[in-house]
Amino acid sequence: MANVDEAGLTTYLRTNRAFMAPVVERAVGLLGLKGRHRILDVGTGAGGGLVALARAAGEQARVLGVDRNESALALALRHAQEENVLGQVRTETADLLQVAARASGEDRFDAIWASDVIWPGNVEDPAAAVARLAGALSPDGVLALFTSNYYSSTFLPGHTRLERQLLTASELDWGIPADGPEHYARHVHWMTAAGLHDVRLHVLPRVGFPADADPAVRPYLEKVVWPQLLAGARARGRDAGMTKEDIARAEALLTPGRPEYVVDEPGYYLIHPTLLVTGRR
């Protein structure tokens, strides 16, 4: 998350973790981790995947959480302690490619989990990064790429054109490629190119409806999604085809307390069509 202070980063990570927790747990449950002892969580963040992996694998397993941000890892360790899996995990401040590169022989991993980390904003060459992770697997090891599929989500039902403009402006603001081999939606391509077999794609929707029946929905929208979309609109909205009136309309719809606030519309919902791609060495 660009240009954010430490307190803002902590809020972002915790809020995102709480919202994604149910679908992350479902995704991890599909990996068949029982009997797998050495597990790597790359891009650990606030530790949602770290805890889910430890629980799914059982007490005999050990999970290494890796992230470049020490503050994120501190959050992850606190979360592991709160969820009573601290004895199963350890963390390391490192780049995922460095950790994968040193894995060899008996030091390879039985499973590797990468959640919202293999994309062009984090790694220069996503396909090469996936190949490196695949090479760090033990025989029959499983690689799991999970993505919240943010830019395919429904955040503004009933406001389709404006939603597309806002998402496009956000992509432009983040410098995300519009297409090509490094596009964020090519997880299956990268897994196949890495030579993994039994590649599978799972769609696991995270639905927020009714919005106020789920305590994670409003905080996620108001602390994570709306700030990002509005920042993108202000910075690159014109490049995404937005008029001055479109940007003003977005401000009205995405500002809590305004009469037009979209989450207060009867029938409001959101859908994240999250994706899990798995493959075996």
Rank of each mutant, 00 (worst) to 15 (best):
M191W: 00
R238A: 15
D198H: 12
W226N: 10
I247N: 01
T168P: 00
V217K: 01
L201K: 08
A252Q: 13
L162S: 08
P219W: 07
A248I: 04
T255W: 03
P273E: 08
L166G: 11
R161E: 15
F209D: 08
V263M: 15
L204D: 06
H189N: 12
L276C: 12
W174Y: 14
G241P: 09
K223C: 11
G158Y: 04
T192M: 12
L229E: 02
V217A: 07
L172N: 05
S170L: 14
A185K: 09
Q165T: 07
V262M: 03
F209V: 13
V199E: 05
R164Q: 15
R161D: 15
V207Y: 09
L204I: 15
A233T: 04
E171N: 11
W190C: 01
V199W: 03
T243A: 08
A248V: 07
G257R: 05
V199M: 07
D239A: 15
R236F: 06
G241N: 10
A233S: 10
M191G: 02
V224P: 02
P157Q: 11
R258N: 13
Y184P: 00
F155N: 04
V199L: 07
H159V: 04
L229D: 03
A240Q: 10
L172P: 05
G232I: 03
V203Q: 13
D239R: 10
W174A: 15
V277D: 00
G241S: 10
Y261N: 06
P256E: 08
E163N: 06
H272E: 07
R258H: 14
P210I: 11
L204Q: 08
I247M: 13
V277I: 13
L253S: 09
L167Y: 01
R236T: 06
R236E: 13
F209C: 11
P259V: 07
D198I: 00
G158V: 07
L167M: 14
P256L: 09
A178S: 14
L270N: 09
H189R: 10
R161Q: 14
E222F: 01
F155R: 03
D179V: 03
A240R: 05
T278V: 13
P266T: 05
V207Q: 07
T192D: 09
L253C: 10
G195A: 04
A235F: 02
D179Y: 09
D239E: 15
E171D: 12
E260T: 06
V188A: 14
R164E: 15
V207R: 09
P273M: 06
A211N: 02
M242S: 09
P266L: 08
P266W: 05
T255L: 03
D246E: 07
G257T: 08
V188T: 14
G208H: 01
E260S: 10
T160P: 00
A194P: 01
G195N: 01
A211L: 14
G158A: 09
R206S: 12
T274Y: 02
V262T: 07
H202D: 14
P219N: 11
V207E: 11
P256H: 08
T192Y: 01
H189C: 04
E163V: 08
E245M: 04
D246F: 08
R164W: 05
L221R: 02
Q165F: 05
H187D: 13
P157L: 12
Y220A: 05
A194M: 02
A240V: 11
D214H: 12
E222Q: 12
M242P: 06
V277F: 12
R206N: 13
T243P: 02
L162R: 04
D239G: 00
